Simulated assay, not measured.
Amino acid sequence: VRNLAIRYDATKPLEIAGFKIRDTHPAGRWLNTPEALVHSSNVVTAQIADNLGREKMEKMSRGLEFDRRPSIELGERAKPIWPKSWGRVTNMTVGYGHGISVTPLHLASAFAAMVNGGIFHPATLLKRPVNAKDNGRRVFSAATSARMRQLLRMIVVDGTGKKADAEGYRVGGKTGSAEKAGIGGYSRSLVVSTFVAAFPMDNPRYIIVAMLDEPRGTAETGFQRTAGWTSAPIVRRTVQRIGPQLGIIPDTHRDVDVSELMPLLWAPKGGG
Rank of each mutant, 00 (worst) to 15 (best):
W82M: 09
D251F: 04
R153E: 06
S177R: 07
V130Y: 02
G97N: 03
M57C: 03
M154D: 02
H253V: 00
A132R: 03
L152C: 10
L126G: 00
A181V: 12
A178G: 12
V196A: 14
D23M: 11
R62K: 15
G53P: 01
D251P: 03
V115N: 09
M60K: 10
T144W: 13
R77D: 05
E214L: 00
H98A: 13
S145M: 12
M148A: 14
A210T: 04
K162S: 14
D67T: 12
P268Y: 05
T144L: 10
V171T: 03
Q150I: 10
V94N: 04
R236P: 03
Y206E: 02
S61Y: 10
G97P: 00
P13R: 08
S109P: 03
H98T: 09
L261I: 07
A113E: 09
G161A: 04
I6R: 15
G185M: 07
P13W: 08
T24Q: 13
H253C: 00
G97I: 04
V239Q: 00
A110L: 04
A10R: 11
G161W: 01
K162H: 05
R128S: 05
H39N: 14
T226G: 06
I234L: 15
W266G: 06
M114C: 09
S101H: 04
I81W: 15
M114R: 03
G117L: 10
